[in-house]
Design a binder for these strands. Sequence first.
DNA 1: ATAAAATAGTGATTTTTTTCACAAGGTCAA
DNA 2: TTGACCTTGTGAAAAAAATCACTATTTTAT
Lengths: 205, 205
Amino acid sequence: MGRIPPATVKRLCFYLHLLERLKKEGKEYVSSKELAERLDLTDTQVRRDLVYFGKMGKRGMGYEIEKLIKELRKILKIEKPRRAILIGAGNLGTALLASPFFRKRVEIVAAFDADINKVGRRIHGVPVYSDCEISRVVREMGIKIAILTTPPDVAPDIAGILINAGIQGILNFTPASIKSPPGVFIHDVDLTMELEYLSFFVEEE
Amino acid sequence: MGRIPPATVKRLCFYLHLLERLKKEGKEYVSSKELAERLDLTDTQVRRDLVYFGKMGKRGMGYEIEKLIKELRKILKIEKPRRAILIGAGNLGTALLASPFFRKRVEIVAAFDADINKVGRRIHGVPVYSDCEISRVVREMGIKIAILTTPPDVAPDIAGILINAGIQGILNFTPASIKSPPGVFIHDVDLTMELEYLSFFVEEE
DNA sequence: ATAAAATAGTGATTTTTTTCACAAGGTCAA
DNA sequence: TTGACCTTGTGAAAAAAATCACTATTTTAT
């Protein structure tokens, strides 16, 4: 499998979620045309994206939903929910822990917080450790993915600890920018930025 | 100002946030080279993005940070924080209301929830109304932007109400897909999807 | 005042991504 | 079995985005 454009990877996630909905609705096959319509893409683009990973469709029929879901989960490396840790059990962190959708798709094995009142407790079933235990837990459990929801001022330091301990992917919800050394992938999600992006397309009052 | 590529709009948000950090650090000018390095882009790309909106730099000097921030805020239509409503005062909704960063950048004038125990109260200073008042409030206040953090099963119905009442942009945090009629811009943010995207780039354990 | 260094802006080019157009299979009803 | 109908997969073309290479300014050090 050659180099996959990031835009395609993003779309794979969309396909996967839509396919899971379609499966729940009891459908067995779906065409690139229908996928495209529901996701505001073109059918050619859907087929191009999918053909990166081999010929997965049946001419005349479309794509077998069950099979394609399996395939996409394999490609995205989420056949089993991936194990991850959460750093920062504040409002957003707690909201993620509380979300059944989120919890269904990722196995959060531990949370960390600087607040000693939270340490030792469980939040929505997830044990909370002290920040100083991050390194040990990451190493002992071989965790590769961290979700960062700390205050922004401590984020770079925490990121340093994470990377040092062997974390390879950070989902960064803080507005702080994290420098990524080679081999570590940082994916920034800035919720205010999403709003500002939207704002551009909406007339002023 | 011609048609701006969405990818450029996305990057404008990045520029703006970085510039605000640089301003806080006391800098007055910044070069396309430095912006590029800090955001993992090329300097040419930064200049191309900015030149869509006129010649904003000074040769030999770079870009005047203060001026460029003003300009970007104008372009993104956020000279004043935009007014928006929040639908669904659950975990994520409450986390957004609690975030000082988020609150600084958008004026959330009202929240709505189906739970009558929440209605009439205030959450982090924002009054909570019943879902059935959405239409009235949107019209009376001329709100254009809504943030959707309801359970996914009610999301399409709520979206219908919003669009009917004249909302023009929806920031959709639910995994439900909302069909956008012409003139209404839907921006989906699916936090689980962000994690799955990251997963693709991180080796399995 | 001058030369060297820095930096924005841009035409031309290259690369990447998307779309078009259609052949090659496959389905399905009669 | 036949023929009409779908739908995938794909070479070629088009469009979009990014980069290169260079020019035009401006600053700064001497």
